[in-house]
Design a protein around this nucleic acid. Sequence first.
DNA 1: TTCCTAGCGTCGGTGTGTGC
DNA 2: GCACACACCGACGCTAGGAA
Length: 618
Amino acid sequence: MVNTFMKFEYKTHLHKLDGCEDHCTVFAFSDPVDAKFAAACEHLHESSCQKCSLVESCVPQIRIKLNDISTNIPDQIVVELTYELDNSEKNLVDWKKHILRTIHQDQARTNVLKNLHVDQGLVILDWAMKFLPYQFRETQSDFFGKKGISWHISCLVTKSDNDEFDRQCYVHILENGSQGWFSVANIILHLLTNIKSTRPTLKAVFLKSDYAACYHCTNLLAFIHQNNGQFSIKVAEYNFSEAQSGKDLCDSKTGSCRMHIYKYANEGHDVLNSRSMKLALDSYGGVKGTQACIVSVNAEDEPKTKIRMPGISTYNNFNFENDGIIAKKAYKVGEGHVIKTSTQCSETISVERVYKLEVLDPFSQDQPISGKLHKFADSRIEDTHDQQPCLEENQPIAENSMNISTCSTSSAYFCCPDFSCDKVFATSNNLDRHLLIGNHNYRKNTISSMDTAVQIYSSSCIDLQKYHENVIQEASHEVEISVNSRKGWGLKSKRANVRFPDKVKTYLQEICASCEKTGSRPDFIALSEELRKATDENGHKLFTIQEWLNPPQIKGYIANIISKSKSSLAVKKPRAELQEVNVDDDEKLSEVVAMLEMNDFNANAVGIVNEVFSAVNI
DNA sequence: TTCCTAGCGTCGGTGTGTGC
DNA sequence: GCACACACCGACGCTAGGAA
């Protein structure tokens, strides 16, 4: 029940003017400690939502039930179940916070588009999944071991004089370079220069991207701020969205480009490198509203500088002002903290030092604009029939709106992919535009499909209905008791860096060493279980509940051990050098190699024989 | 200052399903 | 039976930031 609620319904509850602590985004993102990251609500938070409370209270409810039956089950199982419940409780709350942040941070895009002037633009940045070389006819052996081509997508949205939005997409295919801040800085600079040449009236842009490390890093932010005056178009804001959200437009454009490339390849062409990739993208007039270029960024030119911005991981919104960067933890919550220019100014990140981009093949001629965004009057069913865009932030949402088109065509087949949004479109283009604006119409129905399902079921099963009501009532009662000031509950919690105990490390190192000898791969889930059950010769537990590690932690630690051992081997390993050898030496070498191979073969054969014997108990 | 842990994204290997 | 498509998952790279 909680799972379904979180997946489909929770986001429909959220609102910044709600009187419930679980729903009010301003309350959830107001820092209780630092007033600069807090905003005051003009309403009281007196109401409570039973369903939202259930997220926090479901695990305590299970814990109570566990305590009731704990006398009948072994202590070890009770301890393990308690450990699992603790982890689940934390994960559930984290998930709830993630949904809250996703919805709130997406308002940045909606508001920017709502207030966009004709001399401003919104740029959404994203790295597309690396493109794997594609052959018209390829064998399976060719399919494996491919090295992908990096390509970066930038979508520019501008507003025309007649209140329509224009979209233009820029693809940077990287011949050279990694997906780090240095490449991103070069791409942004090249992009802004290019946009200025085609749209001279543009004066400022708002950047938006996901939380990837190459975007959300001190060096890039400091570079933008320090050199903003030299950019052909000023960067006004940089808003970050939660992981895996807020880049729908880039994703849909990536899909179109991929399909265009595959279509070109399927006509008998091979797309094996950046040149052929650009050729494919430009084929048959190119992808509508999309331009591609090939660039190269030499990683060796990257300035080796380290700029400090304490607390950067908690900041999501940055405004670039003359006297510093105004950083906020959540969009439009609080006045923000000013990061002064002098604290992060560095010669090493000047435009001259950073802008080393080499354009190998420039953008082709300007493609036609991919489409005009008209305004839509009806918030539920959007179409382009001389209607107005629904960019109003708090517009009223029709109660119980149905996913049935009322437009004259009665052919509304394109539903918004967001399960909680009830908008339906007559054409795929309209859906595309809806995704660009991101103005989802979340259902405000008090009765969800889950509720309806429960009601139908409960009508034939009265007992189940009673049980369901009891669970919710008991859960909400629990929460009411425990409620105290939860201000800022939606903010990212501070990461607790806890060192793994030495004896756990030693234990894992031994297991890692034995795996290395046997060649077997460690099973992280089994190891996590093993840590909980390991005992000494007297039958006492080796590790306490505080020392248990979960599978991802074990995986990370073992990966670290392997990585270190590899790097130390690389250092110790003498460098192989090519030397001329005479024929006699060469023959001796061949003999040695043959002998080593024979030894290996014999060892393997003995191993196989032993395994067979042990399998048949001989 | 260095080391270690965590988070996010991408790459490559592997297993399974499908069509010819 | 072969070649390809797709999903899953572990490995790894990059980055931030706290502990030692």
